[in-house]
């Protein structure tokens, strides 16, 4: 019994690995685009410039150094939680590539996951170079996070990516019902921008809006890892409970919606 499972697991990981390596080769081909895309994730830095320029008692309270670390961390978190699955999924659907994918012995889900992971891998050197540039412009904001906050921060970023990916994946299913469902992505972007802590640290939010934000998954996928990395005191327990809770919830929903969507798709004649 166990050996069968092990064998299956082995086979599965082989498929994942080969998918990953082919996607990585593809992403290397797109390095120019990925660089530009990484550059386009500048928003946290723009916000940093604004927040530090404001004559605001709150800023003094938050401490300038902390603000800098927070936004630079948010920049890093954003780089490694980029999700574009809705756009490629819709393209593949419209181009008719999805049907052959569905015939393969592995769900297309893994194809998209590996392509995202491969893209993140390609991004690493780009982000490192960008960080070097940032720190050479504002050297006094440089800091090294403690080993534990670095490790927990990386785990939190990985989980955050999964939560965000699953959220988008669930909405991908709308492509089966409407030709231009990727427009929904723009809607998903709005709470991500304003509720996640990307434009302002959550501490500056009024109490009520902070409460609303914490109902959504967004603070967990941006504010929590960014604060971890910037070396702030955060409750690991609350943050990880939030991330894992959302992960389990979205994962179960995605399985159900995928089944429903596939039934609908095959009923439509693929």
């Amino acid at each position: 019994m166990l050996t069968i499972y092990l064998k299956k697991l082995f086979q599965f990981s082989r498929i994942i690995f080969s998918l990953f390596s082919s996607q990585y080769a593809l992403m290397l081909e797109y390095r120019a685009e990925i660089t530009l895309w990484a550059v386009s994730g500048l928003l946290p830095l723009i916000m940093l410039a604004l927040w530090t320029g404001i004559e605001n008692p709150l800023v003094n309270y938050l401490e300038l150094n902390y603000l800098k670390r927070y936004f630079i961390s948010a920049f890093i978190v954003r780089q490694f939680t980029a999700v574009w699955v809705m756009i490629t999924f819709e393209e593949d659907h419209l181009d008719g590539k999805l049907s052959p994918y569905l015939l393969q012995p592995i769900t297309p889900f893994w194809r998209y996951v590996t392509s995202h992971l491969a893209e993140q891998f390609t991004r690493i050197p780009i982000v490192v170079i960008m960080l070097i540039i940032i720190f050479s412009i504002i050297p006094y904001s440089f800091w090294l996070p403690s080993l534990s906050s670095l490790i927990f921060g990386i785990i939190a970023i990985m989980l955050a990516f999964w939560v965000r990916f699953l959220l988008h994946w669930i909405f991908c299913m709308c492509c089966f019902y409407n030709d231009r469902a990727s427009a929904i992505e723009r809607l998903l972007l709005i709470p991500y921008l304003f509720l996640s802590g990307l434009v302002a640290p959550l501490e500056t939010f009024p109490e009520i809006i902070k409460k609303i934000a914490y109902i959504t998954p967004y603070p967990y996928i941006m504010s929590f890892p960014a604060r971890l990395l910037s070396g702030q005191d955060v409750s690991l327990f609350l943050g990880f409970t939030g991330l894992i809770g959302w992960f389990i919830l979205l994962f179960s929903i995605s399985i159900i919606t995928w089944k429903i969507a596939i039934r609908h798709y095959s009923a439509m004649g693929a």
Binding site: L50, E55, N56, P57, L58, L189, T204, F205
Partner: peptide, 25 residues
């Protein structure tokens, strides 16, 4: 929806800047 969301978000961010009676530049 995205228009309303974006404008609300931008005004909200502005509001965060100004909430302590400060001024921006």
């Amino acid at each position: 929806i995205s228009l309303i969301g974006n404008i609300a978000g931008t005004i909200f961010t502005l509001f965060l800047f100004y909430q302590q009676g400060s001024n921006v530049g």
